[in-house]
Write a protein that binds this DNA or RNA. Structure first.
Lengths: 141, 141
DNA sequence: ATATCACCTAAACCTAACTTTAGGTCAATA
DNA sequence: TATTGACCTAAAGTTAGGTTTAGGTGATAT
């Protein structure tokens, strides 16, 4: 059982953010004592899941839905599982996209390395992959 | 030499977005003919870089800076390279973060699989890694 | 000749996810 | 007793990255 200030410390989140999450319905049936929020283990675990789902790209309103499913009990297991499957695929896709971006960035680092060495970019204009180090070739498409 | 409509098609970006980028200074000294924007190869290449830097998490105002460096010539090679190095590290870090999120999501998929099989979550409360498949263990921390 | 189409601008609008502000309660400390 | 500190609310403000609107120009198709 923690106060909002303690939870803020634990998670490194501003108090205002926790209040905002609560207002958005991310902690359905959180306890209160004379108006003051009491974060139980259930809310702490919820917050961990919130952080995870947020990082996976889910919006607050959809996280709210998930939390409502949790409050509804075992009838919603498969909806919850499906959500996690969707987010899993979304994160996989995002990682793939970022790996392509990474290739391009690796190429650009090499490109400017060469440009700095030569003092100009001119010789880099009609470049073919043969003249590039292996790690850079991939990025050339 | 392309019109804004052609570039919109090529990149799958709304015309309004291209105008917005221009207004934000992402195409310094783009040509115009009687008021109408002309996208040359330089701008097309710029747009490719813009897409990459955006996906790497760079803000528009910093992309604008980069484009100004490009317009300034060879004096700014090392600043440009440093930027790409920074973004490369940022993307690497982001990929790592997402891999952790992915672990958690894999765990949750397994968790709800078990819960569905058993009809309840009760037996999952005091779980230790031994009872989990290999791919799931990592996510348990 | 008129209507449509692609282009233009400035300015208002939009959305998500917070953050800030202004004002208030209550308990403990100086 | 007065003030500090942790909590509360409702409502307004903020930011990034666009999108939409309203009004205008000029070339081509009917």
């Amino acid at each position: 059982m923690y106060t909002i200030g303690q939870v803020s410390e634990m998670f490194g989140l501003p108090v205002s953010t926790l209040r905002y999450y609560d207002k958005e319905g991310l902690f359905p049936n959180m306890r209160r004592e004379s108006g003051i929020r009491k974060f139980d283990d259930k809310e702490i675990e919820a917050l961990r899941v919130i952080e995870c789902l947020k990082k996976s790209g889910l919006e607050i309103k959809d996280i709210k839905l998930f939390m409502q499913w949790c409050a509804q009990g075992s009838d919603t297991y498969s909806q919850r599982k499906d959500l996690f499957i969707r987010q899993k695929e979304a994160v996989k896709a995002e990682i793939e996209r970022l790996n392509q971006v990474l290739d391009m960035l690796i190429f650009k680092c090499w490109y400017y390395d060469e440009a700095i060495k030569a003092g100009s970019e001119e010789h880099l204009a009609g470049m073919t992959p043969e003249n590039m180090p292996d790690e850079v070739k991939e990025a050339f498409k």
